[in-house]
Every structure is written in structure tokens, then in C-alpha cells.
């Protein structure tokens, strides 16, 4: 019985991607061209954010159109302390995760009372409130944002000032995030979340307070995305309300759908495709958004499993 469940096979696409990401700094070291390092860094940070969104959207069936709020909260949790010359990374990250969790708890408690399109709109509305909240605080730059002059430090051990250090910090964070989400989704809690996505009415009937489970899942997702936001603030050295614009939330949804919603590695493929395509298309044409839209339509119509679905079909994933 166990064999059927724990059938293990190598995931070539994942192993190759991780290998490439791990070795990229060496390549950059040799060529001195750190453009790709920045690209991959952004890719991985957005991948963590997409992984967190996938937890509620893909696994839990909660379509949040406001997930960028947590990127903003995370980034400001680095930026505002830095403004007061507090650069302690542990403090900043704990703040990012905690404030994100509280924001998720408060907004989720209200949002999860609604369903379908109402849920989508209300999550977006809360994020817009956070957006305008930040815009209105002149002290922290308001509309113009805030420059982070020094990246996070971790005592005397290390700091993220060096791009390669930051890169590996993000790299390890991504791997740990994927591992955590995998464990969560295979746990009893994860089974309840999957069940609630599939048939909430039956789940209630067999004894689950699905609202509470979904809320916990929503908070976990917010915490992880807040963490990604803290990395993003460090990476960009500059934070602004733009980070939590509703289009940023849309882009995260785009990544999840493109990569394969509900698949563990889907968000990784989605974020990678998004960042690389954006880079490539925008160098060819200013109308690159048009091609993005067309691609999403094609994926939704003809490849419901997204990129991960296509990869498994040709035996490269799962």
C-alpha cells in the first residue's frame, strides 16, 4: 500500500533548474556580467511570492487579488526600520512575517465570509486600502517611495550587502519555501485544505470548520509572501507603494496560472517564465503586455495544468 503512495521519481526539470540557479554566480564571476544575477534574483523572490499565493489560490481555491499587499508590507518592514537606521535582518524579517500575518488574519477573517467574485474583489479592496495608506504617509516618502541605503545585516555573521550573498540567501529561502509548502500540503492540515477546495459542503458535513482552516491557510500564505517582500526590499534597495499596486497582485496570479496552479513547482515555472519573457519581449516591443495576455489565454484554454502540466506530460516534472 505504501509503495503506491510514495512512488518516487526524479523531477528532471526541477533538478536542472536548481543546478542552474546554484551555479549562476560562478558564471557571473567568470564573465563579470551581473545582469543575469539580478534577473535570477528577482525571479526567485517573485517565485517565493508566487509559491505563497499558490498555497491559497492553487491548493486552497481562494483566488486572492490582493497578494501584492504582503510584498509591500514585507518591503516596508525592511525600509521603515532602515529609515531609522535599524538594519538588523532578524528584526526586519520577523516584523515582515508578523505584520503580514496580522494583516492576513484581519482581512482574511472578513474576506473568507464571502465567496467567488466577492472574495476576489474584497481582497483587492483591502490591498488598495494598504496601498493608499502607505501613499498617505509623507514621512516614508508617500508616493515617491523610500531608498534603503543599507541592506539587512545578521549580527556579525553576514549581511546581504554583497549581491552574491543576497542571491544565495534568496536561493536557500526559495528551496525552504518549496519544502515547507510541500510538507504542509501533505500533512493532515493540507489534506483538509485540498478537501475544502474540492467540496467545501461535504467537508463541513464530515466535521470540518472549513472557514477556520482556510483562514489559517490564508495567514500562512500571507506570512510567506511578507517574507518574500522583505527579500524584495533588500534586493531593490528602493521601496514604493507601487509594489502593492493591484497590477502587481495580478502579475502574481498570472505567474501561478501560467506555471500551473495547485502544482508544487508551478509557481517556480510561472515566475521564471514571467521574468524571462518580460525581459525578452520588452526588449523587442513596447507592446509586450499584449503578448503576455495572449499567452495567458492560450494556457488557460489549452493547457489547464500550465507549464507544470506540460512538463509532466513530456516526463520532465513529477
Amino acid at each position: 500500500m505504501r509503495n503506491l503512495l510514495t512512488r518516487k521519481s526524479f523531477n528532471f526539470a526541477f533538478i536542472i533548474s536548481v543546478g542552474l540557479l546554484a551555479l549562476l554566480p560562478l558564471y557571473v564571476e567568470m564573465t563579470g556580467d551581473d545582469f543575469y544575477l539580478d534577473l535570477a534574483n528577482r525571479l526567485m523572490i517573485l517565485a517565493i511570492a508566487a509559491v505563497s499565493l499558490n498555497l491559497i489560490l492553487g491548493h486552497g481555491g481562494m483566488i486572492s487579488f490582493g497578494h501584492a499587499a504582503y510584498l509591500g508590507i514585507g518591503a516596508y518592514s525592511v525600509g521603515i526600520p532602515a529609515y531609522y537606521e535599524i538594519y538588523d535582518g532578524l528584526f526586519q524579517i520577523i516584523t515582515a512575517v508578523f505584520v503580514s500575518g496580522v494583516f492576513a488574519l484581519l482581512t482574511g477573517a472578513v474576506s473568507l465570509r464571502t465567496k467567488g467574485v466577492y472574495f476576489i474583489m474584497i481582497t483587492m479592496a483591502f490591498t488598495q486600502m494598504a496601498f493608499f495608506g502607505i501613499v498617505s504617509i509623507e514621512e516614508y516618502g508617500g508616493d515617491d517611495g523610500l531608498v534603503i541605503d543599507t541592506r539587512s545585516t545578521f549580527g556579525n555573521f553576514f549581511d546581504l550587502e554583497d549581491t552574491v550573498t543576497l542571491y544565495y540567501f534568496v536561493f536557500v529561502s526559495l528551496l525552504i519555501s518549496l519544502f515547507i509548502v510541500k510538507r504542509i500540503m501533505e500533512s493532515r492540515f493540507g489534506m483538509v485544505i485540498s478537501g475544502s477546495k474540492s467540496n467545501e459542503r461535504r467537508m463541513q458535513s464530515i466535521g470540518y470548520n472549513t472557514y477556520r482552516y482556510k483562514l489559517v491557510c490564508y495567514v500562512l500564505s500571507g506570512c510567506l509572501c511578507g517574507y518574500a517582500g522583505a527579500l524584495l526590499g533588500n534586493f531593490t534597495n528602493f521601496i514604493s507603494p507601487e509594489m502593492m499596486d493591484w497590477t502587481a497582485s495580478g502579475e502574481l496570479i498570472f505567474m501561478v496560472l501560467l506555471g500551473g496552479s495547485g502544482a508544487l513547482l508551478g509557481p517556480l515555472w510561472g515566475a521564471a517564465s514571467f521574468v524571462l519573457l518580460e525581459e525578452w519581449l520588452s526588449s523587442i516591443t513596447t507592446y509586450w503586455h499584449f503578448f503576455f495576455g495572449a499567452l495567458l489565454i492560450l494556457v488557460v484554454l489549452f493547457a489547464r495544468g500550465g507549464i507544470d502540466g506540460l512538463l509532466s506530460k513530456i516526463g520532465l516534472s513529477k
Partner: peptide, 11 residues
């Protein structure tokens, strides 16, 4: 015991 986040349920 449904609020268990770490141990694989299938094991």
C-alpha cells in the same frame, strides 16, 4: 488532530 502541519497524513 487536523491542525497538524508537518507530518505527512498519508504515512
Amino acid at each position: 488532530h487536523a491542525y497538524k502541519f508537518w507530518k505527512p497524513a498519508r504515512d
